[in-house]
C-alpha cells in the first residue's frame, strides 16, 4: 500500500502525470478521487478499499476534457482488462496513461468470482488466482432450450430498467446508446421487453465485455446478467479465438477479415 502512495507521490511531484485517479477514504465511504500535485497531503487517504468503481470510465471522461494531459490510474486486474479494451477501441491512448496495479483482497476476489485477479502492472502485494469455473454458464447450457427460456424469462422479467448494468459498465462508451433508441428497444415500459433489452446489450458486449462483474453488482433486482455477458465473451472467444482484455491486435469483430469465416 505504501508502495502505491510513494509511487503516486513521485509521479505527481515529477510532473509526469497531471493527476492520479484512485479511491479516497472519506467519512461517508470510499469513493473515486483524482489526486493532484497541489493537494499532495490527500495521498495519505488513498486507499485500495474493498469496493470497485468503473474508474476506467471516469478516466475516459477526464481524458475527453484534458486530451493533452497524462493521467495515472489505479488498476485492479479487471480495470486493467478494461483499459486494454479502451486502448484497442481508441477510447484512451496508451501514452497518456500510467497504470498502477493493485492486488485484490480475498473477500473481494471470492465475491467477484474473478477469473484472473492479478494485474500485469501489479505494484505490490499479491493476488492468488481464484479461477472462475464456468459453472454458471454451463448450468444454463446444460438445460433444454425451453427450460432456458423459462429461466431467463423469470430472471429478466424482474428488470426494472434502471440502466444500472449499462451505466456501471466500464466498456459502455458509446455516445448514443441503442437501449435509448425507441424503435429498437422500447422505452418507458417495464418490465423490459424480452429479449430485446438484454439481448441488445449482450450483442453489444461481443468483443467488449471483460467480465468484471460490475453490472451484476449494480443490478438492484439481483438478475444474474453477468452470466449472459460471460457467455458472449466465451462465444466470441470460441469462434474467433479473441479474448477481451488479453488478446493482442485488432478485434476480429472490428475487422472484416479474409472471408474464410464460414456460415454456421
Amino acid at each position: 500500500m505504501q508502495e502505491l502512495k510513494d509511487e503516486v507521490k513521485k509521479l505527481l511531484e515529477q510532473g509526469s502525470i497531471a493527476g492520479f485517479l484512485g479511491m479516497i477514504a472519506t467519512t461517508s465511504g470510499v469513493v473515486p478521487h483524482l489526486f493532484v500535485a497541489d493537494k499532495a497531503d490527500e495521498i495519505e487517504k488513498l486507499t485500495t478499499g474493498d469496493v470497485r468503481y468503473s474508474l476506467v470510465q471516469i478516466l475516459r471522461w477526464i481524458a475527453v476534457r484534458h486530451p493533452d494531459d497524462k493521467f495515472g490510474i489505479m488498476c485492479r486486474a479487471c480495470d486493467e482488462r478494461a483499459m486494454t479494451e479502451m486502448f484497442r477501441n481508441s477510447q484512451l491512448s496508451m501514452d497518456k496513461v500510467v497504470m498502477l496495479g493493485i492486488p485484490c483482497t480475498d473477500e473481494l476476489r471470492i465475491a467477484c468470482e474473478c477469473e484472473e485477479p492479478t494485474p500485469k502492472s501489479l505494484l505490490f502485494g499479491q493476488s492468488t488466482a481464484k479461477k472462475w469455473d464456468k459453472a454458471d454458464v454451463e448450468r444454463i447450457d446444460a438445460m433444454e432450450t425451453e427450460e432456458r427460456l423459462d429461466w431467463w424469462t423469470e430472471q429478466l422479467g424482474k428488470c426494472i430498467k434502471c440502466y444500472g448494468c449499462r451505466n456501471s459498465c466500464p466498456m459502455c462508451f458509446c455516445r448514443v446508446c441503442t437501449l435509448n433508441d425507441d424503435p429498437l428497444v422500447k422505452r418507458g415500459e417495464i418490465p423490459s421487453e424480452f429479449p430485446s433489452f438484454h439481448l441488445t446489450r449482450a450483442f453489444h458486449m461481443a468483443g467488449r465485455c471483460v467480465d468484471c462483474g460490475l453490472c451484476e453488482e449494480a443490478c438492484p433486482m439481483d438478475i444474474p446478467i453477468r452470466t449472459i455477458y460471460r457467455k458472449v465473451r466465451l462465444v466470441v472467444g470460441e469462434l474467433t479465438n479473441f479474448w477481451t482484455g488479453e488478446s493482442k491486435g485488432k478485434s476480429p469483430l472490428a475487422e472484416l477479415g479474409d472471408g474464410t469465416f464460414p456460415i454456421q
Binding site: 444454463i140 447450457d141 432450450t145 425451453e146 427450460e147 432456458r148 427460456l149 423459462d150 429461466w151 431467463w152 424469462t153 429479449p195 438484454h198 439481448l199 449482450a202 450483442f203 461481443a206 449472459i228 457467455k231 458472449v232 462465444v235 466470441v236 469462434l239 474467433t240 476480429p252 469483430l253 472484416l256 477479415g257 479474409d258 472471408g259 469465416f261 464460414p262 456460415i263 454456421q264
Partner: peptide, 19 residues
C-alpha cells in the same frame, strides 16, 4: 464477411436465452 460473424454470434446468444 461481417454478416457471417454476426449471425454466428447471434445464433449462439439466441440459443442461450432459449430461442
Amino acid at each position: 464477411y461481417i454478416t457471417a460473424k454476426r449471425v454466428a454470434i447471434m445464433k449462439r446468444l439466441l440459443e442461450f436465452l432459449g430461442i
